Simulated scan of single mutants.
Amino acid sequence: MSQTYGSESDLEKSIRTGPAYLEGLATPFNSQDWIDEEWTGTLDIRGQRRFRIRYYGELFEGLIVGTEDAPQLVYGEDEFTGELFLLFDGCSHGYNAMLCDEYNDEQRNRKAALTYRDEDGEELFEIRATAYYNIDWDDEFGEEVDEEGRLALISGQKIPFEIAKRNGFDAIGIVAINSKGNQTEILQEELA
């Protein structure tokens, strides 16, 4: 059965991909409600949808923020195996981290040693991430892409241009939903 779309924008929303590092780890959430520059996904690993949140950073007004030493780092942790799934690394993800801000090895190698607990005292959550894409990468960087289709980042690393566009979002938000259905925004970051 073929699917019919009301406009090209509907088709684009139905096939839009979010951050490349979340591919295979997050399933799109309510894509019909996305605004044009938005992608939202729910962490979903082999059907498991509840995770601990491990992080590096500080809590400020309920949000995980960076410290004086380094940007925040956030993982979802499998409650049974302890396996970590990267949700956001302020040293690597987003426009500024990829193209403007430089970080040393110590900053990049920080550990997500803290466990997030919400106001209800819970520490297992459904985790939903939303990335926003308001940058015209083709216009801004198209001429800087090499013959192999790679873009040089500020770190000197070269990555495929399509991956740069997906991981170079200009804002991100992460929401934790506890067993009672209470939603808490745990990360909100402007990255461009």
Rank of each mutant, 00 (worst) to 15 (best):
G121D: 03
G47L: 00
Y21G: 07
G24C: 05
E143Y: 07
L86H: 07
P160A: 01
L59E: 04
T115C: 10
A152I: 11
R52D: 05
D69G: 14
N104H: 09
L63Q: 04
A26V: 12
H93Y: 11
D89M: 03
A164D: 01
Y116D: 00
P71Y: 15
R50Y: 13
N182A: 08
V145Y: 06
S7I: 02
E190Q: 04
A70T: 15
I45A: 01
I163S: 01
D138Y: 12
S9L: 06
D118K: 02
E185R: 13
Y75F: 15
T115L: 12
R166M: 14
G94V: 08
N96A: 14
F85E: 00
E12T: 14
E38V: 05
A70L: 13
R54Y: 05
D33N: 11
A26T: 14
I163L: 01
Y116R: 00
V145L: 03
E144W: 10
I177G: 03
E144P: 07
L22Q: 08
I154F: 13
R49G: 01
K13Q: 14
L86K: 05
F51I: 00
N96V: 11
Q3I: 13
I159E: 02
S92M: 09
R110T: 13
W34N: 03
K180A: 13
T40L: 01
T130H: 09
G168K: 01
T184I: 05
E119Y: 12
W39E: 01
Q3A: 10
G94P: 15
G156L: 07
I159K: 02
A131E: 01
G76C: 03
Q107Y: 12
E140S: 07
H93S: 09
I177M: 00
T184G: 05
A164W: 03
D69W: 12
G149N: 02
F85K: 00
A192D: 14
G168V: 01
I174Y: 07
E8S: 08
Q157D: 15
K158A: 13
K13A: 15
L187W: 02
K165W: 14
M1P: 10
T42C: 14
D139C: 05
L99T: 07
R166I: 06
F80R: 03
F125E: 00
G47K: 00
E126G: 08
F60R: 03
G90T: 07
D78V: 03
G41D: 01
F51K: 00
Q183H: 10
W34V: 03
E122Y: 09
A26E: 05
V74P: 10
E38K: 02
D89H: 10
I53E: 00
N30H: 12
A20H: 12
E83R: 08
F85V: 02
E144C: 08
S9E: 05
Y132D: 07
R49W: 02
D139G: 06
E140W: 08
E162F: 11
E185V: 11
L99M: 10
T27K: 03
L99C: 04
Q157C: 11
V65I: 12
D78P: 08
W137K: 00
A20S: 14
G90A: 04
R117V: 12
Q157N: 12
G168N: 01
T115M: 08
E185G: 09
D170H: 10
R150V: 13
Q72P: 15
E119F: 09
G149C: 02
